[in-house]
Simulated scan of single mutants.
Amino acid sequence: MGKTAHVSAIVWIAALSVASWLWLLLCQGFFWRTDIRLPDRTPPREWPSVCVVVPARDEAAVLPASLPSLLAQDYPGPAAVFLVDDGSRDGTGDVARALARRHGGLPLTVDSPGEPPAGWTGKLWAVRHGIGLARAREPEYLLLTDADIAHAPDSLRELVAAARTGGFDAVSQMARLRVESPWERLVVPAFVYFFAQLYPFRRIGRRGARTAAAAGGCVLLRLETAERGRIPDAIRQAVIDDVALARAVKGAGGHIWLGLADRVDSVRPYPRLHDLWRMVSRSAYAQLRHSPALLLGTVLGLALVYLVPPFALLFGLTAGSAPTAVCGALAWLVMAGTYVPMLRHYRQPLWLAPLLPFTAFLYLLMTVDSAVQHYRGRGAAWKGRTYTRPDAVADEG
């Protein structure tokens, strides 16, 4: 009797996993589709002024592969680049100046704001300083882009045309991340897949929709909207600054578009699992607002959606429970099928699709580790800085 009840419980859990996947497949904004690319783009009669703001901390190694692509932008209107050296110790500013002398192109200004005051993350303090420098040129748009992002020569022109044509206050592209090492192939496409699952791109672009997100590596932002939303001051404590920025834009009544990029690439390598682990774990618990309840819910949700299907299939086959095996196989099949478009976008072999439960298990461990590091006082650590909870900063103030 006890064994029968045990099997029955597993059948119900497996059935719930199937139901979860059918809901995700049909009701979560078709997150799994990868055809969300820059919308219609009609060249404006007059090209507006744009200032590019690049916050950079210890980026001397990647700047030679990224900064020349910004300086070489084929943009018909007035444009300038402001690289803000956020307390680098590797000569980032000197490397940037040398690259500008060597490659020419758009005018480059390199400056440093000094150490951020309490309550500010270093990146947003640098962005604030860069926006302050840019205001002197009275630009209509700001392009906020990371130091490890390389742009195709027409990137800025295409972003501005898309913003003007669609009436968007912010146009953001999810840069194509590097996938060369075995660990990058296993983990990186899943990172973008999970992001799209949390923030379906189709919903973000709908006027009036509550879903808000952006990809911090490439955000074209209307300056008037930034000022109306008090960006970046209103989000100065945000560790996950791109999502916070998008919420501030929508809070100011702005319209956002977010999609996948074809010719905007991250040049930062994450060759080892340790590198990818740090990238995820440094901010995962901040994404959960440092809430133990949300952490528990996330762990249980990941287990139900990603780990139950293979377990149910194996259990059903070994225990002779056909319903359990069928539910597990169906959930696993839907899971792998929704992952295939992202693997194709990253030009990766499709045999990686059935391995998504293993990758999800890694992300589960990274999320738990993020919480552990937080309670050990290490918080969201990045390049020599550790950020506490926003409420902790407020208490200290």
Rank of each mutant, 00 (worst) to 15 (best):
L288A: 07
L288Q: 01
H290W: 14
H290P: 00
S291W: 04
S291L: 05
S291V: 06
A293Q: 08
L295H: 06
L296F: 13
L296C: 10
L296Q: 02
G297N: 06
L300N: 05
G301R: 05
L302W: 03
L302N: 04
L302H: 06
L302K: 00
A303D: 04
A303P: 00
V305R: 00
V308D: 03
V308E: 04
V308I: 14
P309V: 11
P309M: 07
P309A: 07
P309Q: 07
P310D: 08
P310Y: 10
P310N: 12
P310M: 12
P310R: 09
F311P: 00
F311R: 04
A312T: 07
L313D: 01
L313M: 14
L313N: 02
L313P: 02
L313R: 02
L314S: 12
L314C: 13
L314Y: 06
F315R: 06
G316I: 11
L317F: 13
L317T: 10
L317P: 01
L317R: 11
L317E: 09
A319K: 11
A319R: 14
G320V: 08
G320N: 09
S321D: 11
S321K: 07
A322Y: 09
A322D: 09
T324P: 01
T324F: 03
A325T: 08
A325M: 06
V326N: 01
V326E: 03
V326M: 12
C327D: 01
G328H: 04
G328P: 01
L330N: 00
L333T: 15
V334Y: 02
V334W: 02
M335I: 09
M335F: 01
G337Y: 12
T338L: 15
Y339E: 04
Y339W: 14
Y339C: 08
Y339N: 03
V340D: 06
V340E: 05
P341H: 10
P341I: 13
M342C: 05
H345E: 14
H345M: 13
Y346H: 11
Y346M: 12
R347T: 14
R347P: 04
Q348P: 04
P349D: 12
L350P: 04
L350A: 11
L350C: 10
L350W: 15
W351D: 11
W351K: 07
W351E: 10
W351L: 15
W351P: 03
